[in-house]
Design a protein around this nucleic acid. Structure first.
Lengths: 214, 214
DNA sequence: CTTTTATGAATGAAGG
DNA sequence: CCTTCATTCATAAAAG
């Protein structure tokens, strides 16, 4: 997950930076590097996910239409396991997530237990400011933490008292929620069907494409 | 809604930065951002290109195999959207809320980016109609999606803009605020068709994918 | 190292 | 529109 260890001596050449859309940035060492925001990263991931899905479905389609063993299908599907892996085995999108330090956690728990169940934005700012002294943290982290904490707490409570009061439907995990949108059964996925027809490319050499990936 | 004025994404804890931390940089606003070198960018581009190629070729393969028949019996399994494969629990109930398929998402994103920020009722109907060819969907879904998308976008903007460029960074090239550089630049179309041939993937991590095959 | 669990984050939908 | 909630997804941490 450290695809980006950055050797100080191999600074990228400025003129090469104009190719793909990354933001140009200068770090403390004065080197030029590309910067990708999380939003961009996210869109990129989705983009790739689209490809991955199309590949998967095409493979499935292919499988369903031919009895003979699939050539590169399995590989294609598995490839998505980590499409953003570089040659060094480093993930480009190592989505790192905040992990509260014990101290931060303690403080958060304390605040949560204080009964102030409604963390206003102002409150969150204060909390963040305090926690920031004990490690990297953002307001979003705090917000999410309380959000999750509350939900989890609620859930536990429900799990503890399932048979207590009401006498209503406890067989399932709440399924007859028709108030959503439309009677929605299962996800039909003939996704690649019509789109696939629009595409027009050349020879089926998927396997070669795969092999070139070594 | 000021709670979301935060770094683009949560940065790793200081102690984590040494071990597995990504290549984090601090820009003028004190935000943590991911940094990409040219080499990494190149690898990424190649990977996407390979994906594009694979898709193309699979489509072609599919076409050549189904030129006689129609798409009858093309009941694909949408792996990506299958929520029943989560590690934690095992729900037998169908999904309760709509989840856009990658293809749907792509279309939605495109429409969103086209600037038509105001999805009229009529427009929504059209969009719904189109997306319906790619999976279950309702107008409410589309409406909600745009609603959420807009809000989310706005929040991110606010979270990004507030970075004040005061200290350091004396060069002109810097424009962290203008993060509108869209990964759409990675858009498959041309990349794949022209360069895909000479792409050579040095991805040893394929081994991890192979494991699941053997 | 592989599998499981705990939990931070993303997101569709509802409410105001 | 903005905020909140519920559910799901992904991954760091723990267990085996």
């Amino acid at each position: 997950m450290e695809w980006n260890k950055q050797p100080p001596q191999q600074a990228a050449q400025p003129e090469e930076l104009n190719g793909v859309g990354g933001n140009l940035n200068i770090n403390s060492g004065g080197m030029f590097v590309k910067v990708m925001t999380d939003e961009q990263m996210e869109v990129l991931r989705k983009q790739i996910a689209v490809y991955a899905t199309i590949c998967e479905q095409l493979v499935e389609l292919h499988k369903s239409l031919t009895s003979q063993h699939d050539l590169a299908g399995a590989r294609l599907v598995n490839l998505y396991c980590d499409p953003l892996v570089t040659s060094g085995g480093h993930k480009i999108t190592g989505r790192q997530r905040w992990t509260p330090t014990p101290v931060q956690l303690q403080i958060l728990e304390r605040i949560f237990d204080q009964g102030n169940g409604a963390p206003s934005k102002q409150k969150i700012k204060e909390i963040t400011a305090e926690l920031c002294q004990h490690g990297q943290i953002s307001e979003t982290n705090v917000y999410n933490w309380f959000q999750n904490r509350r939900a989890r707490s609620k859930r536990k409570q429900q799990a503890t008292q399932p048979n207590n009061a009401e006498s209503e439907v406890e067989t399932e995990v709440e399924s007859p929620n028709e108030k959503k949108t439309k009677p929605e059964d299962f996800q039909p996925s003939h996704i690649a069907s019509s789109r696939a027809e629009d595409l027009c490319f050349q020879n089926p050499e998927a396997s070669s494409a795969m092999h070139s990936m070594d």
